[in-house]
Write a protein that binds this DNA or RNA. Structure first.
Lengths: 240, 240
DNA sequence: CGGACGTTTCGGTGAGCGCCGAAGTGTGCG
DNA sequence: CGCACACTTCGGCGCTCACCGAAACGTCCG
């Protein structure tokens, strides 16, 4: 239906082509996996999706051609990651809109175990999500560093807090400093954008939290509990 | 590929099913048309998309079942509209991400004429877009009523300005007061959310602008030019 | 009541596409 | 140099789905 001569609206054709990239279950699984913000090899994704390497290779070709993924070749490996923040935002939007259905069924024990780890804390592209992400966002709001009542933006106090906490904010580029990202386990917005990414990077770098397994789930360390308590008054109990 | 037993990730299956709704050119054209925020009949959409009524009926069935559209039956008519603000946001996101390609080609004279009217001013779901939307957003920002440098939110002054200008803001519900929506002609964010919708509703109600034809395009009236100039210091020249 | 009209259902058709395995290409390592 | 490994290309299979026209169903109106 896309191959016919475009006697139709070119904008509709473009939108359909873009959406069709995510309209396949295997490609959707790739996009969700890549929401951890890291680069995966083609082989890793093929095993993750349980399809032949040849099949996945074709999928990656389409996703890259469509602009959703960026690729980097290293030797005999092909690394892919989400192309940019806009591509990530699209996947986040789609995932958030799907959640109502998917939230209704924690499958096997193993999956529900992994699910609850994901619900406690995870990364979402390049920022924190899950109860951890919500706790941080709420703490920032309660301390007057982030405003949610009139939109979603840092306050002047918040603008000073980040550098003071040793977290640099890169104000170059068009990416917004703060952006709301709808959390698909908590069903409430958490902090994304430049500030969210900087905070997540710092949290992983300073050992506040560590990744669990190869998934997106993260676990708050004791160091992290102390730091979050001191800096933002987050009680460890809120993270469990 | 979707009909097989779901031995795969259920979240990926849900995302793929959602995306597949927009992955068809005809359905995409419907979603874009419905971005005007109004309800269309099945027949109107069929003519707009240039397909048989029977074909379009099937498309509407899928879009409604998928939760993107809401329908209302009136006599022998079937009215459909975008289901809610989240569905509209998804379509807006997709459209914005597509723009880079589509912006490159204003087709025939007639289309480019309609295109420039759309570029001057239009509605985007339920708020203002195009040069008009950008002008309003910029004016609000310049007057300290809206903050974009730290995210996207009304200021306290902005919170007072709306009621003072006779525009009520409904603060019930989960919809954010202010939200950035990427404009696909201007490539910059304009005001969406509760405040954007209220402003647009007021602008149409008070005769600041009127719709042109059956499309989304709107035209600023002389009354509107005066009001925008007095209230926000927007010069008429900026709207042409 | 009967015709006009908007919408829906149904059968049939053709095109697109996801999947695989086998064979081919290129890289790295012993 | 040659094997192992990661990835890609290709041919073929089977399923899905958008499309149409014809016919059925409702509603409105004269």
């Amino acid at each position: 239906m896309l191959g016919r001569m475009s006697t139709k609206d070119p904008r509709a054709a473009g939108l359909a082509r873009l959406a069709s990239l995510a309209a396949d279950e295997t490609r959707a699984a790739c996009l969700l996996a890549l929401l951890d913000g890291r680069a995966w090899t083609a082989g890793e994704l093929a095993r993750h999706c349980r399809v032949a390497a040849s099949t996945l290779s074709e999928h990656l070709g389409k996703l890259v051609a469509g602009g959703l993924l960026a690729e980097e070749r290293q030797g005999r490996h092909r690394y892919v990651r989400l192309a940019d923040a806009r591509a990530a935002q699209l996947v986040e939007d789609l995932a958030a809109l799907v959640a109502p259905d998917a939230a209704a069924r924690p499958r096997t024990l193993r999956q529900s175990g992994a699910g609850s780890a994901m619900a406690r804390g995870r990364t979402c592209y390049d920022h924190l999500a899950g109860r951890l992400g919500i706790a941080v966002t709420d703490a920032l709001t309660a301390r007057g560093l982030l405003r949610q009542d009139t939109g979603f933006a840092l306050t002047d106090a918040g603008l000073r807090w980040f550098p003071a906490a040793g977290i640099a904010l890169d104000r170059q580029g068009r990416r917004p400093l703060a952006r709301a990202c709808l959390d698909w386990t908590e069903r409430r917005p958490h902090l994304a954008g430049v500030a969210g990414a900087a905070l997540c990077r710092h949290a992983l770098g300073a050992g506040w939290c560590v990744r669990i397994g190869s998934e997106r789930a993260v676990k708050v360390t004791e160091t992290g509990e102390r730091a979050l308590s001191e800096l933002l008054g987050i009680e460890a109990a809120a993270l469990r």
